[in-house]
């Protein structure tokens, strides 16, 4: 096991370096930079010397290779530099938005799990019945409906329902308050995006649960359990489900990793100031320092959760370790 972990961790390094190179090059290939964006936005006559000065201050006039090593070195000494737009440290900008994104990701994963596992089991147990078709339709619809549009519809629904029941329209609060500070306010704001994205992710997990259950229900040991006269409920919950959950947990874990940075579009709909919003702003302002570190953060989380799921697999299934 130790050797396997060592090998997997070692394999991560070239991936991360490759990702860093890719992000760095992609951003620098774009025409223009933050200094040009700033002066265009300010409406002042374009003064080349001012733009040069701005580039010098931000270190954009250094050779690309030096800029790249500065970027990588930042990860060695844990100093990611300052945002080129606000001048605040990148870590600070990320930290103030991290809680919001993390909370939505956790809540959405919970929503997904609560929907997916029971539906997946029912669908598999009643394969090819009306129930199965309805669940599958529900799941495929979840993959088809864009979560940003579902978000819009939820807001619209809230407006209409509150208008008719309370007499005046109610919208989720815009300002973020920590759950420790004001739990009701916090929930009133974040439950909707969590449901909108959670439904979408539940769809993938429902299908996974269904197909994993179908596979397991055909195993010999399930037949043995049934032949022993065991109650069907116990056969399903104890024997089948336990073995079917492995791929489901993997999917949920990877989705969680994706949610940390993938809320880009949904955050726009709900006017949330999270990591996704920070990334869209960074892209629009060509704030290289912000965008490259943010993308790397998402990639690192993604790769790490990938690693953890692989390790969990190897731990649970010795065949993987030795192959």
């Amino acid at each position: 096991m130790g050797k396997y972990i060592f090998k997997r961790v070692l394999l991560m390094i070239p991936t991360l370096i490759g990702a860093a190179i890719l992000v760095f090059l992609l951003l620098r290939m774009a025409p223009g930079d933050i200094c040009a964006v700033r002066y265009l936005g300010s409406g002042l006559a374009i003064d080349e010397s001012q733009i040069e000065l701005c580039r010098e201050q931000l270190g954009l006039n250094k050779p690309q290779i030096v800029q790249f090593f500065d970027f990588i070195w930042g990860y060695v000494v844990f100093d990611l530099g300052d945002s080129m737009w606000t001048g605040q440290p990148v870590t600070h900008e990320i930290a103030i938005r991290f809680e919001l994104s993390l909370q939505i990701a956790i809540m959405a994963t919970l929503v997904a799990t609560i929907i997916a596992i029971p539906l997946g089991i029912i669908s598999a147990v009643r394969q090819n019945t009306i129930t199965d078709y309805v669940v599958r339709g529900f799941a495929i619809a979840g993959i088809a409906i864009p979560s940003f549009w579902l978000g819009l519809m939820i807001i619209l629904g809230l407006l209409i329902v509150t208008q008719s029941w309370l007499g005046e329209p109610w919208m989720p609060p815009i300002e973020f308050k920590s759950i420790w500070e004001d739990p009701i306010h916090n929930m009133a704001q974040l439950i909707w995006p969590a449901v909108a994205t959670g439904y979408r992710y539940s769809a993938v997990a429902t299908r996974m649960t269904r197909s994993a259950m179908l596979e397991v229900l055909r195993e010999d040991y399930v037949r043995t359990a049934r032949a022993k006269g065991m109650v069907e409920k116990i056969v399903i919950n104890r024997h089948a489900l336990k073995n079917a959950l492995l791929p489901v947990v993997t999917i949920l874990a990877l989705e969680f990793a994706f949610l940390m940075g993938g809320l880009v579009v949904t955050e726009q709909v709900f006017n949330l100031n999270g990591l996704g919003n920070l990334m869209v702003d960074g892209v629009e302002r060509q704030d290289f320092a912000m965008t490259q570190n943010l993308v790397m953060l998402v990639v690192i989380i993604y790769v790490f959760i990938n690693l953890l799921t692989d390790l969990a697999y190897a731990w649970l299934d010795p065949r993987i370790r030795y192959s």
Partner: peptide, 14 residues
């Protein structure tokens, strides 16, 4: 290693 939308976003940014 990139989530789908993040990579697409980075390419569109370029």
């Amino acid at each position: 290693a990139f989530p789908l939308i993040i990579l697409a976003l980075a390419v569109v940014a370029t």
